[in-house]
Design a binder for these strands. Structure first.
Length: 348
DNA sequence: TATCCGTGGCG
DNA sequence: TCGCCAAGGAT
């Protein structure tokens, strides 16, 4: 089984920016950076971000020396911004507590911020060729089908991990096997229309025998997404600049910049009211356009309001705000949602 | 165990 | 248009 998969990988692996040339050990910094970016994010999306980060910060020490604002600005658009905050913390931990050298074991890696069970196993095996089974969404799908596991996720996770470890036990090339396992799921054993004819494991696959590969893995139904409503404010100084400010906290968009906004709430009628501080000091008017954006747990509709408000800094919560030109938005950690809003307003 | 956390592409 | 899902982690 292992040799068939490794042989298939040797012939068919994709060329990826973070992948070492054949016969060479990859740089642990590159492996770590790519693995954090690839969490819940597609290979195609990650590519340009990986190149940008490596060019900007060629070593873990350089990344550690950057400010969080710089890291979040470079990460902007990738989503799940806690990953970027933890990436920065992890770089600082490796630099300050580990002498700039990544731990080479699963247990050691697991101690670091932003590195969970999957990523620890992935880095240990890929960067250091240590035996470790990395179970991601691809591996879950391959294993579910190979053993025809009918129990739906996430209850089946434990069984899947055991079966995956069983398949990986004693493998000759742990790093290549980890990548091959995921590569098989990403390119052959795909969620829809799996290419079973091309699979190196087709002769032993239980789901293929039963003809229900595409139905696996089964998953528990997800809850419906609510809609939240709010307003964003395009406040200009009359000289081509507008106001942004930094979000606090570690939660949604924590540490990222944004246009001033009301809270985002599900009560549409309550959201329609203009908060008193804005009404009294800024006197904004509706632009007649809204920004729609879909997040993990809710869909968002933000109505855009505008005002010429050179004294907006006097409004509570906007004391630390700053005026910027739209050509400089790349310098700030503005999430895609806010870039959409700015795109509609820039030029007003 | 369950919930929170972004974004983009695809069928 | 809409649901799915992508090299998951933290709490």
């Amino acid at each position: 089984m292992q040799d068939r998969l490794l042989g298939w990988f040797d012939r068919h692996q994709r060329v990826l920016p973070w992948r070492a040339r054949k016969g060479r050990r990859p740089d642990p910094y590159h492996v770590w950076l790519s693995e954090i970016m690839l969490q819940q994010t597609t290979v195609v999306t990650v590519g340009p971000y990986f190149e940008k980060f490596l060019k900007k910060w060629p070593s873990v020490q350089k990344l550690a020396a950057a400010s969080q604002d710089e890291v979040l600005a470079a990460w902007a658009g990738l989503g799940y911004y806690a990953r970027a905050r933890n990436l920065h913390k992890c770089a600082q931990a490796v630099t300050n507590d580990y002498g700039g050298v990544f731990p080479d074991t699963e247990e050691g890696l697991l101690e670091l911020p932003g590195i969970g069970p999957y990523t620890a196993a992935a880095i240990a095996s890929i960067a250091f060729d240590v035996p470790a089974t990395a179970v991601d969404g691809n591996v879950e799908r391959v294993v579910s089908r190979f053993f025809s596991i009918e129990e739906p996720l996430p209850a089946s996770k434990k069984t899947i991990r055991e079966k995956a470890a069983q398949l990986a036990k004693g493998v000759s090339r742990p790093g290549d096997f980890t990548q091959a396992f995921m590569e098989l799921g990403a390119t052959v054993c795909t969620p829809r229309k799996p290419k079973c004819g091309l699979c190196p494991w087709k002769d032993d696959c239980a789901a293929r025998r039963k003809g229900n590969a595409e139905e696996l893995p089964r998953k528990l139904a997800k809850a419906a997404k609510p809609v939240r409503y709010g307003k964003v404010f395009w406040l200009s100084d009359g000289k081509g600049r507008f106001l942004i400010h930094k979000r606090a906290g570690q939660g949604l968009y924590g540490g990222m910049y944004q246009l001033p906004t009301t809270e985002w709430i599900t009560d549409r009628k309550a959201a329609a009211k203009l908060p008193a501080p804005f009404q009294e000091t800024i006197k904004p008017c509706p632009l007649g356009e809204s920004v729609r954006h879909s997040l993990t747990h809710f869909d968002l509709v933000l109505e855009i309001w505008t005002a010429k408000a050179p004294r907006a800094g006097t409004v509570k919560g906007l004391e630390e705000a700053c005026w910027i030109h739209s050509e400089n938005i790349g310098d700030y950690g503005l999430p895609t949602l806010m870039r959409k809003a700015i795109g509609l307003c820039a030029g007003l």
